[in-house]
Design a protein around this nucleic acid. Structure first.
Length: 426
RNA sequence: GGAGGGGUGGCUGAGUGGUUUAAAGUACCCGCUUGGAAAGCGGACGUGGGGCAACCCACCGGGGGUUCGAAUCCCCCCCCCUCCGCCA
């Protein structure tokens, strides 16, 4: 049995809830067709099961009969027909089930009541803004235009060696990148997350469980033996508990992981992809939580606060967006984006996306906990968010902290990691 | 990469075509017993799906096949163990 992402019971008992969710996410889905498939599938299932029941009953009788006896042979003839019927109906059932499954996969997660109405990114709500964005020094430059930038981050040679979007980080560029990673991990561990270093390739089953497959197959790099380079640590981390039942006591489980992230970014173009804004390989620390359903929205606020604290300690201006229904991902119930201000480009760069998936991912990955009172397994709620993505934070740091003399001031919190108070492009 | 051996419930482990409705043990849970516990005795004890329910169906690593009928036979794949080879 493969699992849909939305609870089929919600669809049956309250189709209007699903209809409303589709509307709030501004998706075009023919729900009536899905409902029709659902009842057709159930009807067919019941037909097959009745026949199977007959087969089982006959089986028991035949076991008691003498092998070659006329009664036995008659029974074999009788059951041959039933067997053929089961085979045919079972085939039809499988076809229906495939359609049903595909239809169920097309149904999005239901947005939380606090998600604002809206169709496009412009309708996201600015939940909070921290730090100054207006007073950037007049000499602020996009990071790729800073004199000597390619001494630290070399895109040209990366393109020669691998391809566009695979830069080399050199000298103090590499050191700054590593300092940020170390800082993020240390802070996340302090906040209660257990550090994990996961595999950076996953198999198809894992990529399917977190939803990268089949929809985003074109966004992943795949090896000759069908392993997928992770687009985010979310994939191996979430799959850690796939097909497992946890004890209720262990919740919430909070983990963080650094991995390089690989994204083909097919279809991206223009100013979005300049410099470090969008690359095919980048370092990121991901935060992940497996929580009791009753606390997932509290945990979402904590997760967001944990990610925000990193930007605060780096003294970078940023804002928090509460995503509107139309800009909410397919599988999310509620999502905040953290965007750092890049003073040179004069634009916001997304560095973290903190989401509550409720049971949507957990159902697909079959991650459950045993309810202590009932003794029955229930789906956990999963949440994740970056804490944080390195290159864009690094870019913002370069742009915001660029001094008149061409050096970059390192924030106090990062100095112990970087080892110096200023970075130089020479 | 090569050769061999394995994969059955939380765990141990029986089962090589049909009363298997997966034995038995063990752990956990609930009783009885006890001053309390252990032992002992009794009961309960997997997951998913369908059904208002009674109940029914599926699941023995995964997927196909043979058969009236598959945990059991056949094919493909995955994983684990032992040895060999290669190697950071």
């Amino acid at each position: 049995m493969r699992f849909p992402m939305l609870d089929p019971k919600v669809l049956r008992e309250s189709p209007e809830t699903v209809r409303a969710a589709i509307a709030r996410k501004h998706l075009a889905i023919d729900l009536d067709a899905v409902l029709e498939l659902d009842s057709a599938w159930r009807a067919q299932l019941s037909e097959v099961e009745v026949l199977r029941s007959r087969q089982k009953a006959a089986n028991t009788k035949m076991a008691a009969l003498k092998k070659g006896s006329p009664e036995f042979l008659a029974k074999v003839q009788e059951m041959k027909a039933v067997s053929a019927e089961v085979k045919a109906k079972d085939e039809a059932l499988k076809l229906l089930e495939e359609k049903w499954h595909a239809a169920m996969l097309s149904l999005p997660n239901i947005p939380h009541a606090t998600v604002p109405e809206g169709r496009a990114p412009e309708q996201n709500v600015v939940h909070a803004t921290h730090g100054e964005t207006g007073s950037a020094s007049p000499h602020a430059l996009p990071h790729w235009e800073i004199a000597g930038f390619s001494n630290l981050i070399d895109f040209a040679r990366g393109a020669k060696v691998t391809g566009a979007g695979f830069p080399f980080f050199i000298g103090e560029g590499a050191k700054l990148s590593r300092a940020l990673l170390q800082f993020f991990l240390d802070e996340d561990v302090k906040a209660g997350y257990t550090e994990v270093s996961p595999p950076i390739f996953v198999n198809a089953a894992s990529a399917t469980a977190t939803g990268q497959l089949p929809d985003k197959e074109g966004q992943m790099y795949v090896t000759a033996d069908q392993l997928y380079a992770v687009p985010t640590a979310e994939v191996p981390l979430t799959n850690f508990f796939r097909d497992e039942i946890l004890e209720e006591d262990v919740l919430p489980v909070c983990r963080c992981a650094y991995t390089p992230c690989f994204r083909r970014e097919a279809g991206s173009y223009g100013k979005d992809v300049r410099g470090l804004n969008r690359v095919h390989q980048f370092d990121k620390v991901e935060l992940l939580k497996w929580v009791h359903p009753s606390s997932s929205y509290d945990e979402l606020e904590k997760l967001r606060a944990d990610a925000e604290r990193l930007l605060q300690k780096l003294e970078l201006p940023y804002r928090v967006l509460l995503m509107c229904g139309g800009d909410l991902g397919f599988s999310q119930s509620k999502k905040y984006d953290l965007e750092v201000w890049a003073a040179g480009q004069k634009r916001w760069l997304e560095v973290s996306s903190c989401s509550n998936f409720e049971a949507f991912q957990a159902r697909r990955a079959q991650i459950r906990f045993r309810n202590k009172e009932t003794g029955k397994p229930e789906l956990v709620h999963t949440l994740n968010g970056s804490g944080l993505a390195v290159p864009r934070v690094l870019a913002a740091l370069l742009e915001n902290n660029l001094q008149v003399d061409g050096r970059v001031e390192i924030p106090a919190a990062l100095v112990p990691y970087f080892g110096k108070e200023y970075l130089s492009f020479k």
